[in-house]
């Protein structure tokens, strides 16, 4: 043990500099080089896992392209946000554009647009979904046309765009189209409603008449809009599947009348029309379910 009284003190930096003098012998480096060479060869021969091999290259590539990728992401996000929050008047403009295209198509087709029954059945749920927003109830009345010369399964509608400049037939029949979209955009809260709003606007602006041009023995479907009271039926408030179910029920009823049409008199027809028009949705549903129409059973409907 050194005697500390004899030590002449130096600075800390000078003491630390002594550490620089701790060096290995020259022969140490020969051994070091040999071992390093062996380890290097082993590292080259060893199979590296894929996350060390490929992930590094991928990350390097992404790091190079981070500015363009980030800019593209921001642009996409902006586009989506603008598209989602587009105002209803902008939707009107889009609808007007599609209306022009549709009008041109109607001119080409001799001012008549032929809509298949499939499309009709697709539109029925949409119109029956309307009461959710506007407290209006649409009821479907089916009546049988006894014209014997036509067996067509298609229903032909007349397109009269020029004659229905204001609220069109569809717009009048479904008041929510005119009020909910044009006036109170806040009611279009759900994105689902917003998504098919342009389609409904097209329908309104085109002026499609729901009143059929019955020239054959087809089914006349007339959509009547009636103002509902504040306490609506629960079934009417349901959108989507329940409303499509209603449309299906109406078509079943129509089919039932179609089969009975030949042997029914005009008086009986009128009575049935009145009875059906007075049926509430619940009654219509329960009646049809009771006689098994919903299950694809018989087509006879008796009251």
């Amino acid at each position: 043990m050194a005697d500390h009284s004899e030590i002449r003190k130096v600075s800390l930096e000078e003491v630390l500099r002594l550490k620089r003098l701790e060096r290995p012998e020259p022969q140490f480096w020969d051994r070091f080089d040999k071992e390093l060479r062996e380890k290097q060869l082993a590292a080259i021969m060893a199979k590296r896992p894929w996350w060390q091999m490929d992930l590094g290259r991928i990350m390097t590539g992404l790091a190079r392209a981070r500015v363009p990728v980030g800019a593209a992401a921001v642009l996409t996000l902006t586009f989506l946000v603008i598209r989602e929050n587009r105002r209803p008047d902008e939707v009107d403009q889009g609808a007007a554009t599609s209306n022009e295209v549709l009008a041109a198509a109607s001119v080409v087709n001799g001012d008549q647009v032929t809509v298949s029954r499939d499309i009709d059945s697709m539109q029925a749920p949409m119109s029956s979904a309307m009461p959710v927003e506007s407290h209006a109830v649409s009821s479907v009345v089916a009546s049988v046309s006894a014209t014997p010369d036509a067996q067509s399964t298609e229903t032909t509608y007349a397109a009269k765009g020029d004659e229905h400049a204001g609220p069109s037939a569809v717009g009048a029949l479904s008041p929510w189209v005119g009020t909910s979209i044009d006036d109170t955009s806040s009611r279009l809260a759900s994105s689902g409603v917003r998504s098919f709003a342009p389609t409904l606007m097209d329908l309104r602006d085109t002026g499609l008449e729901a009143v059929p041009q019955a020239r054959g023995r087809g089914i006349q479907l007339a959509t009547l809009a009636t103002e509902s009271s504040a306490n609506e039926e629960p079934l009417a408030k349901l959108a989507g599947p329940a409303n499509s179910q209603r449309a299906r029920l109406a078509s079943y009823v129509a089919a039932a009348f179609k089969s009975d049409g030949e042997r029914s008199s005009m008086a009986e027809q009128r009575i049935r029309e009145r009875a059906i028009s007075r049926l509430s949705n619940d009654e219509l549903y329960s009646s049809v379910s009771r006689i098994g129409l919903a299950a694809g059973g018989g087509l006879r409907l008796t009251f």
Binding site: A2, E6, I7, R8, K9, V10, E14, V15, R17, L18, R20, L21, E22, R23, P24, E25
Partner: peptide, 25 residues
């Protein structure tokens, strides 16, 4: 496990400043 301090040049000077001892001490 330490390396040996190579007591030459600068190290020698610092150690000489610290102590007058020579040899084994």
């Amino acid at each position: 496990s330490f390396e040996k301090i190579h007591d030459e040049e600068k190290g020698h000077e610092i150690i000489s400043q610290l102590t007058d001892k020579t040899g084994g001490d």
